[in-house]
Simulated scan of single mutants.
Amino acid sequence: MTTKQPHFQAELALDEYRVVLQAAPDLVMPASLRVGTLAKSGPDADRRGSAAVAALTGRQLLGRTAVGPGDVAGDPHPLLLVALGLPLMAVQAMRVQSWTPTESSQTVVSVAGRLMSAVTVTVPRCTDSPQTSARASEHGRVAISLGSLSLLVGHLDGLLAAAPPEPAGMRALTVQLGLVESRTLIAAIRTGDDLVTEQLATQFGATAAVPLLRSLAVSGGG
């Protein structure tokens, strides 16, 4: 019988993920999941690396082998290696990019035979772009899962943001915007231009949506 429970799941800090990749140099990750090295991601690389190794060995995700300055020894957990290595042998793969006002995520879902793996790298988002380079980030997290193919639909569904509940007394509103108006509205939201946002919303009978549209604006954007 095929189980629907993941065979393996882990969430790593960004530095822990870097340590795992350094401990398995034969792993070649997709470009969207590459996060650079400890040394190039910020200051105090040795201290951060030692803390990451201690956390990984404490969770039995990395072998308990002596670690020297700037060097990583010990083998990562076998299932962790399988999950991270599946993109190399995948028959099918999907890449998903998503972001919120504060975070940016890159996900690669790989399928090989009856196995699937999903790796999501999430880092703090720049205020002026939906994309943030994980290579230059000290902070972030990496969600890793490995399981049977039956998990695929549920995992992809989990990548989609749930629609917020409709407030009492409110009704859904659908409006149609032309291409020019759509681009103007998106630019106004990105730059925090409340006046243009309100004018467009009012023009298309969506005045009630103005507070929501304003909340999407990224402070300091440009």
Score class of each variant (00 low, 15 high):
Leu27Ala: 03
Thr122Asp: 02
Gly42Trp: 02
Thr202Arg: 12
Arg214Thr: 09
Gln60Asp: 12
Gly68Thr: 13
Val196Lys: 12
Val91Arg: 15
Ala172Cys: 14
Gln106Leu: 08
Ser41Val: 04
Asp44Gly: 09
Thr3Met: 04
Arg64Ala: 09
Thr191Glu: 03
Phe204Met: 07
Gly158His: 04
Arg18Gly: 00
Gln92Phe: 14
Ala187Val: 07
Gln5Thr: 13
Leu200Val: 08
Pro211Gln: 11
Gly63Ala: 10
Pro130Phe: 08
Gln9Cys: 02
Ile186Val: 13
Asp75Thr: 14
Leu27Met: 08
Val82Ser: 01
Met94Trp: 15
Pro78Tyr: 06
Val119Glu: 06
Val72Phe: 03
Phe8Gly: 03
Val121Asn: 02
Gly192Lys: 07
Gly222Pro: 10
Val67Asp: 15
Pro6Gly: 08
Val35Leu: 07
Ala83Glu: 02
Pro164Gly: 11
Ser50Ile: 09
Gly221Glu: 13
Glu103Ser: 11
Leu33Asp: 03
Thr102Val: 14
Arg18Trp: 00
Arg141Pro: 04
Gly58Ala: 08
Leu62Pro: 03
Gly85Asn: 01
Gly140Ser: 03
Glu11Tyr: 04
Val210Gly: 04
Ala134Thr: 00
Thr107Gly: 01
Ala39Gln: 05
Asp128Gly: 14
Leu115His: 11
Leu61Met: 13
Ser182Met: 09
Lys4His: 15
Asp15Gln: 09
Ala163Met: 08
Gly178Lys: 11
Asp75Lys: 11
Ser215His: 13
Leu156His: 07
Thr57Gly: 06
Ser137Tyr: 00
Asp44Lys: 11
Leu115Glu: 06
Thr107Gln: 04
Thr202His: 09
Asp71Leu: 12
Val20Phe: 01
Leu152Trp: 12
Leu56Gly: 10
Gly222Glu: 13
Leu84Met: 09
Thr174Val: 14
Leu12Gly: 09
Gly42Met: 03
Ala163Thr: 11
Ser182Trp: 03
Met170Gly: 05
Val72Met: 10
Arg214Trp: 11
Ile144Pro: 02
Asp194Thr: 14
Ala143Val: 04
Pro167Asp: 05
Thr184Trp: 12
Leu27Asn: 05
Pro124Cys: 05
Phe8Ser: 10
Ala66Ile: 06
Arg34Phe: 00
Val67Phe: 13
Leu115Gln: 13
Pro124Glu: 06
Ala13Lys: 15
Val19Thr: 02
Gly158Ile: 06
Val121Glu: 03
Val91Lys: 14
His139Pro: 01
Leu86Asp: 00
Gly140Tyr: 00
Gln60Gly: 10
Ser50Glu: 14
Leu213Val: 07
Ala172Leu: 15
Gln106Lys: 09
Leu88Ser: 12
Val123Cys: 11
His77Gly: 01
Pro130Met: 12
Met29His: 00
Gln9Ser: 07
Ala31Thr: 07
Leu179Glu: 14
Val20Tyr: 00
Glu11Thr: 14
Leu151Lys: 08
Val142Leu: 01
Thr122Ile: 09
Arg125Ile: 04
Leu185Glu: 04
